[in-house]
């Protein structure tokens, strides 16, 4: 592996890790605060991609399409919470798994009904086209770099939101002692709605960012959801910091596994193990720490 390839892969790994973090943080927040398993997060990732593609086409501007798409995402997330999830908080996990699985089927097939089965391709916004020279001899696409930076900035903003603001305080309190903050007069239903919207929009934004990199297709959120669930489990359910570390680890393992393993073990075996590497890492971490990295 040459140095330039190595640098490129580090950036690819960072990018995958950041995107996974955006998706995983939604799942882990919803679990931490509401004690709910949400398999519909993958559907929101996909909706993000489709909404941005449609909004961009309608306004013929990526920069107008972005806020429109996010607004539409917020509406969808609110509808999901108000109509379905709200009724599931006190239910056993199997009900939550099945209802959100059902939602996922509805969204995936609903997207087929609206947008058809063919992948929707999105252009990279003009301002972010081309590539930039990171180091002498190492060129990297600007858009991918922008995605990583933007996702990273969102992560930092989220950190401040959770650790420094009143909403963040309520979120942390809600995760720790649900009944207590309810007794203190906090509108818990509203807090839950906010948390779900926040998580859902972050997932949807990940889908939007992915749009121009890989085409937007129905079911595009499913594999991402599964990887995000792995991050959530490795990081420790409900832990945002844990999800971040896990997402970086998964992003790097997956990216480097796909490059190095086929070289080391031959195309067939290497690719097979590269597909599994994330799960192998997860199994190893769980044998070491059954409740994830964030547990003590």
């Amino acid at each position: 592996m040459t140095f330039s390839l190595f640098v490129e892969q580090v950036f690819n790994g960072l990018q995958l890790g950041m995107l996974l973090f955006l998706v995983a943080v939604g799942v882990t927040l919803v679990f931490g605060v509401m004690n709910l398993v949400n398999l519909s997060q993958g559907a929101l990732v996909m909706m993000g991609g489709f909404l941005l593609a449609t909004a961009t086409k309608a306004t013929s501007s990526y920069w107008l399409g972005l806020p429109l798409g996010i607004a539409a995402l917020i509406v969808i997330a609110m509808l999901i919470e108000l109509l379905v999830l709200r009724r599931l908080y006190a239910r056993p996990h199997i009900d939550q798994v099945l209802a959100t699985f059902g939602l996922m089927l509805m969204f995936n097939e609903g997207a087929v009904m609206i947008w058809g089965r063919d992948p929707v391709f999105m252009a990279i916004p003009a301002a972010l086209e081309g590539s930039v020279t990171l180091l002498p001899g190492v060129a990297y696409p600007i858009y991918r770099l922008a995605v990583t930076i933007f996702a990273g900035a969102l992560g930092v903003a989220l950190h401040f939101l959770i650790s420094r603001t009143r909403l963040g305080m309520l979120i942390r309190a809600g995760a720790d002692k649900r009944e207590m903050i309810q007794l203190l007069g906090v509108d818990i239903a509203f807090l839950y709605l906010m948390v779900f919207c926040l998580g859902g929009v972050l997932g949807g934004v990940a889908g939007m960012l992915l749009g121009p990199i890989s085409a937007v297709t129905t079911g595009m959120g499913d594999p991402i959801l599964i990887l995000a669930l792995v991050c959530v489990v490795i990081g420790g359910l409900g832990s945002v910091g844990g999800a971040f570390v896990a997402a970086m680890l998964v992003g790097m393992c997956d990216t480097f596994g796909r490059v190095l393993l086929p070289q080391a073990l031959g195309a067939g075996t290497g690719q097979a193990i590269a597909n599994m590497i994330v799960y192998l890492v997860m199994a190893a971490i769980l044998i070491w720490r059954p409740a994830g990295l964030a547990s003590r």
């Binding site: 679990f31 792995v230 489990v233 359910l237 597909n275 599994m276 997860m282 769980l286 044998i287 059954p290």
Partner: peptide, 28 residues
């Protein structure tokens, strides 16, 4: 043996992850 060390949600997600692993074995 590996998944039953956990319970609840962890169990759900760990069984899912192992199943994915096996799925990729089939695919390969």
């Amino acid at each position: 043996g590996l998944s039953l060390r956990s319970s609840g949600l962890y169990f759900i997600m760990i069984t899912l992850a192992f199943a994915q692993m096996i799925y990729y074995v089939f695919q390969s």
